[in-house]
Simulated scan of single mutants.
Amino acid sequence: MSESEYTKIYYGNFILVTRVKDALEKEDIIPIIKDEGESQRLAGYASLNQGFQEVFVHNDELEKANYIVEKVKAEMEASA
């Protein structure tokens, strides 16, 4: 089995994922957003995780991306 070049670093609803995505892009990290619920809906199946998305980044950017995600999560908790 081959290893993926990408690692999941975050899972959440659309709004939270958008904040993480924007923060990553400001640091020139281009994430991949995977929406299983939307994929299942488009294929005609019911989805248990509707509205939740996963954020993946290239393994070369993993350390920097994890730092950014933790920073964004801290900011969201502080404003709650």
Rank of each mutant, 00 (worst) to 15 (best):
N59R: 13
E3A: 02
G51L: 03
A46C: 07
I29D: 00
D22V: 13
M1V: 15
D22M: 13
G12C: 01
F52T: 13
K71E: 10
R41I: 13
K21R: 08
V55D: 15
V55L: 12
M1K: 13
L42S: 07
Q53K: 07
S4L: 13
I68E: 06
E3F: 12
T18P: 00
N13H: 09
A78R: 04
R41W: 09
A80I: 06
A74F: 05
Q40G: 01
E77G: 00
G12P: 08
E70C: 00
R19Q: 10
Y11M: 04
Q53S: 09
S39K: 14
I32S: 13
D22G: 02
I9K: 00
E5D: 10
I32L: 13
I68F: 03
T7V: 12
V72G: 00
Q53N: 06
T18V: 07
N13S: 06
K8E: 10
R19W: 02
K8C: 03
F52G: 04
I68V: 08
E61D: 12
I15W: 00
D22W: 15
F14G: 01
E25Q: 09
I32G: 05
G12N: 07
N59V: 14
K64C: 07
E25F: 00
V69M: 04
E63F: 09
F52A: 05
G12K: 05
G12I: 08
K64E: 15
G51W: 01
T18L: 13
S2P: 11
F14Y: 07
A80Y: 04
N66I: 07
A78N: 03
N13M: 03
T18F: 04
A65L: 14
A74D: 12
